[in-house]
Design a protein around this nucleic acid. Structure first.
Lengths: 102, 102
DNA sequence: TTATAATATGAATACATGAACATATGAATT
DNA sequence: AATTCATATGTTCATGTATTCATATTATAA
């Protein structure tokens, strides 16, 4: 029984993994996701809570939604966003915890 | 006993977390780290194995070393690099596995 | 149907980043 | 000391990205 050989990463996986980490590599998106980890929020709530421009929040949410990291439900004029990927949000929270306690 | 309130992330943690994920957000760095997860490698070995320019590998390794994600030992003219952060390398491998099997 | 509130979109811009090339350093060998 | 091998560094360039402003869309209420 030989030692396991090196298995290169296929292109598609490589792209998806890099995209996912890219989503987590921006301070603004981290703050948004960390907030959504705690509770569901409307766009306005996120803007106010994190002191970000509404259009900025909207752009970032589109990015995160495209990667299926967040989802939303509508209530009248208001869209309530929440996280939509348990694995990724846990990776983020683990990293925050790991970084804080070092 | 009240519900836990939202705890914002301090600036330093935010920066470190974003930097760490940024290291993982580039296909070239992912390939290098994934290779180093398997085995210790010299710069030339990495270049050949992944078909990357030596200077490119060197630049990426500097980036990773600055974040203490890799370390090296010298043997003559050769520098052997290996990963240096169990938590981060595991997060990467988990993400690759998670992405592949979905 | 006009007004308003909530959110999304498009364009512009300033800045960051990855890759390549050329060259420099540094260690071993002759 | 000169040569060679392994790696690092500086610079340039093209591309990518985050943010902002202005405006559009959409849903509700008056």
């Amino acid at each position: 029984m030989n030692k396991k050989n090196y298995e290169p990463i296929d292109e598609e996986t490589l792209f998806l993994v890099s995209q996912t980490f890219k989503a987590l590599s921006d301070p603004t998106r981290i703050r948004i996701l960390h907030l959504l980890f705690e509770k569901e929020c409307s766009v306005t709530e996120i803007s106010n809570c994190l002191e970000l421009k509404q259009s900025n929040v909207s752009h970032q949410l589109r990015f995160l939604k495209q990667l299926r990291l967040v989802k939303y439900r509508r209530d009248g004029k208001t869209l309530y966003y929440s996280h939509d990927d348990e694995h990724v949000i846990n990776v983020l929270e683990q990293m925050i915890h790991h970084t804080r306690h070092h």
